[in-house]
């Protein structure tokens, strides 16, 4: 492995929701340009990881540390984390009637540009960019005028998340089960969008239950998350193993060890 500085370093992270421990000593190191897949059964803590990293209310960090570009992530507010380059594509994006998608996108981009000390983008220029992004994710332009995610289908919501990613150009993208509820065509659109954004300085955490997505987004590393920590890591081939075996072995492993012993 190269000596490049890490983009994200998670060390021995413990986190809980409503007093219930969900993450139990999770460690992960991500360098710029890498794509890490996190797989695991339901209830392993996959979505919790995204929420903890983005600073959602009610997700308490009990122990451990996370740095983004060497900065302590937990010292930052949710919006500061976003401005520092963290992006979470939601499994269930929130509907906000009354706030137009375009207004929402512009407010997001404006806030991030301002934080970076860049000049504000003009409305006309932004509209051009937004239309291009809309086209790239295969959403009709009219979706810019609609309320944020309001009445969007599951697939449209996921594509809208992707559109935000294209416009915000984050350094670290966490895709939380972006494949759930998508048919194969929508999956390809999302995967193409993600692949178009892969670069030497942008990293991805692809959280998924199924190996299918990883046929389209090729990961550099695959990690298996079980009961709040990473129990196995490998390259892309690990995903295929999981596909063949399922997750049942995770529960059985201790028993098998005993038998072998």
């Amino acid at each position: 492995m190269s000596n490049t500085k890490s983009l994200l370093t998670i060390e021995d992270l413990y986190a809980s929701v409503e007093e219930k421990q969900i993450l139990k000593g999770l460690s992960l190191d991500i360098k710029p340009g890498e794509v890490h897949a996190i797989m695991g059964p339901n209830g392993a803590g996959k979505s919790t990881l995204g929420y903890v990293l983005s600073g959602r209310d009610g997700y308490a960090v009990d122990d451990g540390s996370v740095t983004l570009n060497g900065e302590d992530l937990f010292e930052m507010e949710t919006e500061e984390r976003a401005r520092a380059g963290l992006f979470l594509a939601f499994q269930y994006p929130v509907e906000i009637p009354g706030v137009s998608n375009l207004e929402f996108l512009k407010a997001s981009v404006d806030a991030q540009r301002e934080a970076r000390g860049e000049d504000a983008i003009t409305s006309a220029d932004f509209l051009k960019e937004a239309k291009a992004a809309c086209k790239q994710v295969n959403l009709p332009i009219s979706f810019l005028k609609r309320g944020v995610n309001e009445g969007f289908s599951g697939g449209e919501k996921k594509r809208n998340e992707l559109m935000q990613m294209l416009l915000l150009k984050p350094q670290l993208c966490i895709l939380d089960e972006t494949d759930s509820g998508l048919d194969i065509d929508a999956l390809q659109v999302v995967a193409e969008g993600v692949n178009s954004q892969r670069s030497a300085d942008r990293s991805f955490i692809v959280v998924t239950h199924y190996q299918r997505l990883l046929d389209y987004i090729k990961p550099d590393f695959v990690h298996v998350l079980s009961d709040g920590k990473i129990v196995k890591s490998g390259d892309a081939s690990l995903a295929h193993e999981l596909e063949a075996q399922g997750y049942a072995w995770l529960q059985k492993e201790p028993a098998e060890d005993e038998l072998e012993g």
Binding site: E77, E79, A82, I96, S108, A111
Partner: peptide, 18 residues
């Protein structure tokens, strides 16, 4: 509110928008 904040919008601006 959280959703808007995860996109970099400040809490106070997000409140106005909502």
């Amino acid at each position: 509110l959280y959703y808007l904040q995860t996109r970099g919008v400040s809490r106070s601006k997000a409140q106005v928008m909502l």
